[in-house]
């Protein structure tokens, strides 16, 4: 099977599904990518404090994600230990939508990947632009809609239309992972060969607190994922990224492939 760009797509038909049609796994499941990532260790970062309550941030943007310039928040540390909870993946327990109406409410993986592939040379807006690039692909290509909310809130995902900035879930890989997992019913893909075009790939390095990189699956070739990203190489493979750091003292210890579902 080939997509619009002629890239081979496999794996879509072999996604391991349970009887309910949903990929399942442990709450903090990472994706099995074979030997290269066999040194997966438990993540000691997450706490048992649970997810934070919906933000009471007074700087709420409107439905379009715009916030007044005078309500821009002062810089805050990106890492906020203690507010994270375990990845109780609600998506893993939700049912796959069916029918035309449901299909219209589902994020288009092909749309996401096609936008990303065709816009690889789009301007980097940040020095670490990976999440911003993926967010733009989800929005412009996948049809994922913005959600209003506080800049740092997990439930929010927006970019201002008049230069008022973007939510952290738009620009930070780890915040984006938490957003799609919790609020877009994203399912965790258990193995690399189960990945589909348009899936999001999150990377966590062993000695780093959180997931610090995200890319998009652009094609599946014999069960292996090709990815596009704003990173060291815009087009590469999942295994090339893993291999690059595999022998160093700070290897990639977790790769989590997720498939966000709901647009709203």
């Amino acid at each position: 099977m080939r997509n619009k760009l002629g890239r081979t797509i496999t794996g879509a038909a072999v996604l391991a599904l349970t009887a309910t049609g949903v990929a399942t796994g442990p709450a903090d499941a990472s994706t099995d990518v074979g030997d290269a990532a066999s040194a997966v260790v438990p993540d000691a970062v997450w706490t048992a404090n649970g997810w934070p309550a919906p933000s009471a941030d007074p700087h709420l943007p409107d439905a379009s994600g715009n916030i007044p310039a005078d309500q821009e928040e002062a810089p805050q540390p990106l890492i906020d230990e203690g507010v994270y909870g375990p990845d109780t993946d609600s998506a893993s327990a939700s049912a796959e939508p069916t029918g035309p109406a449901a299909a219209a409410s589902v994020i288009s993986g092909n749309g996401t990947a096609n936008w990303a592939y065709n816009n690889l040379d789009t301007k980097w807006e940040y020095r670490t632009d990976c999440a911003n690039f993926v967010s733009k692909a989800l929005y412009h290509g996948g049809g994922m809609q913005m959600r209003p909310g506080g800049r740092k809130a997990d439930n929010a995902w927006w970019q201002g239309k008049y230069g008022f900035g973007k939510s952290w879930s738009w620009t930070s890989a780890d915040y984006l992972r938490r957003h799609v997992t919790k609020w877009r019913n994203a399912a965790t893909v258990p193995h690399e060969y189960n990945a589909k075009v348009g899936d999001l790939v999150f990377f966590k390095w062993k000695k780093e607190k959180v997931y610090n990189h995200v890319a998009i699956v652009s094609a599946m070739v014999q069960g292996h994922a090709r990815i596009v990203q704003h990173g060291l190489k815009n087009e590469t493979t999942l295994h090339e990224v893993i291999d690059r750091y595999s022998h160093t003292s700070n290897p990639i210890e977790k790769v989590t492939i997720v498939r966000p579902k709901t647009r709203k």
């Binding site: 810089p75 540390p77 670490t128 999440a131 930070s172 000695k207 610090n212 160093t248 700070n250």
Partner: peptide, 11 residues
């Protein structure tokens, strides 16, 4: 290991 770190826009 060196890397860009910090809030988006302030790395």
């Amino acid at each position: 290991t060196v890397r860009l770190d910090g809030d988006a826009g302030k790395e």
